[in-house]
Nucleic acid binder design. Structure first.
Length: 302
DNA sequence: GCCCAGGTGAAGT
DNA sequence: ACTTCACATGGG
């Protein structure tokens, strides 16, 4: 163990890889078992060793605090998984398959833009667009202490913060299109204007009831039920949110509706009744299970 | 070329 | 209320 690393232990159940590859966040890259990402303007580099999370090189106290918050390491995840397993056999199977899958606490503004970009889009393209937007409008991040990542002259290995609402509010829509945002470009700019002006206070949504916060988010163009639920679940701590996309529709049909066709409203109602205040956790395990284990079967179900 | 990808908004029944 | 369609972009 290197002296300059920081080990955060006693966090089981926790699975770094599955958590970061479960489609919640779009700014993480893996090299072997080391994951590097930008969170709230800081570069985090981490790997998992057994039941511990290891923060690579110069990890400040602030980095540690940030990692604990971001990965929800302060949450009693064991009891959440226990409750989920007791709900039904399907969930039990999904939880056992991916124990330690956490819900991240992302920065709401970046989360909102990321999921506006997710509409009718593919995950690799969403990742690319988010990255290009950060490079085009964000600020380069000075990495503390020694060996700054080399190669930035070629634009390969430098890191950028996600741009503020104010920065994107003054962006040229055509430049956003060049970042790969496509027809969602105008939605991103309009959302930036609403947030930058204070018309919508994203952090303030935490103080509202789930439905009220969701209504506020859905008043933004390009934000429907699904995107609003993603923002509430992945950045605002609304664990009753249950985002329903094509994958969730498939997996819910398959497991809970005998393969028959059902509307998203029916699925949403069922999820609220069955999973209650843990619906968001149920969604994340089922979504990840569907993509990792059932991709072939579910595609054929259309 | 054609189809689809973590949907949404607008227009049509 | 429910159904249909366009919407940029790129990978299979």
């Amino acid at each position: 163990m290197r002296r300059d690393e920081v080990v955060i232990s006693g966090i089981s159940p926790f699975n770094l890889k599955e958590t970061l590859e479960s489609g919640q966040a779009f700014r993480w890259d893996a090299e072997d078992d080391v994951f590097t990402g930008v969170v709230r303007g800081r570069v985090l580099r981490a790997r998992q060793e057994g039941d511990s999370l290891v923060l690579a090189r110069p990890a400040s106290d602030e980095d540690i605090r940030l990692a604990v918050e971001y990965f929800s390491l302060d949450v009693d995840h064991a009891s959440i998984e226990r409750r989920l397993c007791d709900m039904d056999p399907v969930l039990e199977c999904a939880v056992r398959s991916f124990t330690g899958l956490r819900l991240l606490r992302q920065e709401p503004w970046e989360c909102l833009v990321s999921f506006i970009l997710s509409a009718r889009n593919a995950i690799p393209l969403i990742r690319r667009a988010v990255e290009r937007i950060a490079r085009a409008y964000g600020d380069p991040i000075e990495q503390e202490g020694g060996a700054r990542q080399s190669g930035d002259e070629f634009g390969n290995t430098s890191y950028y913060s996600f741009p503020t609402p104010g920065k994107l509010a003054s962006a040229d829509v055509l430049d956003l299109v060049r970042c790969g945002a496509g027809f969602r470009s105008q939605y991103v700019k309009a959302a930036a204007e609403r947030v930058a002006s204070g018309d919508i206070d994203l952090e303030g949504l935490r103080n509202l009831a789930y439905e009220a916060a969701k209504d506020k988010l859905m008043s933004l163009r390009g934000v429907g039920e699904k995107v609003a639920d993603c923002v509430l679940l992945f950045s605002l701590g609304s664990y009753q949110a249950f985002p329903i996309d094509v994958w969730m529709t498939r997996v819910m049909r398959y497991f809970y509706f005998g393969g028959s066709k059902v509307s998203t409203a029916t699925i949403a109602h069922f999820a609220r009744e069955r999973f209650g205040d843990l619906a968001g956790y149920a969604q994340q395990y089922l979504f990840h299970y569907a993509r990792r284990k059932l991709a072939v079967e579910l595609r054929g179900l259309e």
